[in-house]
Amino acid sequence: MEVEGMPPARLREPAHRVSPRAVRYWTVNALLGNVLAWAVMFVIAWFLPEGRWWSTTLVWLFVVAMLANVVEVVVEPVVRYRRTRWEVRDGRVFVQTGWLSRDQRIAPLSRVQTVDTHRGAVMRLYRLANITVTTASAAGPITIPCLDTDLAEAVTAELARITGQTRGDAT
C-alpha cells in the first residue's frame, strides 16, 4: 500500500492533553443527562404488568441501557481524557478527539476565519473552556475541548494574533 519512494508515514498524537478537571466535568455532564433517563425508566418499570413476555423484555432492555449509561459515566471520561490531545505549532492547529472513534483535524492558521471561546454553565464550575477555530469550510471547524480557563485565554489571544497577520479572505 506504499507509494514508491515515500517512507511509510504516520501521524503522531498532538503534544498536549486537556485539563485533568475535564474528566470530572465529563462525568458530571454524563450523570446529569442520565439521571433523567434513569428516572423515566424506573417509573415505567414500576407500572409494568408482571408476567407478560413483553414487559420482561422491556425490563431487560432497561438494564442494558443502564449498563451503557454506567459505562458512559465511569469509563468514557477516563478514556476520552487519554485520547483527547491538542497542539499549536508553526501556525497550524492539530486536534485529536473521540474515545471509540478517532477524529484528527489539522488546519493552518492562515486559513482560519474566527477564534471563539465558549464556557457552559457546568464548565465554569470546573474553570474550563472550549476553543473553536472556524475556517471557510463548514466541514472544518476545530474544537479544542476543556482547556483550563487561563490557558484557553492565552491560547485564544495567540491564535487571534497569528490569524490577524494573514491577508486575503482565507479561502
Binding site: L11, G98, L100, S101, R102, D103, Q104, R105, I106, A107, P108, R111, T135, A136, S137, A138, A139, G140, I142, A170, T171
Partner: peptide, 28 residues
Amino acid sequence: IGWRIEQGFFQRRLGLADLMATTAAGSE
C-alpha cells in the same frame, strides 16, 4: 484549507480512515 482524518470504531481495527480535505469551494 485543512484536513480531517476520521476513524470509526470498526475502521480503527482495520487500520482504515475517512480522509477529508476541507475547502471553501463546492460542498466544502
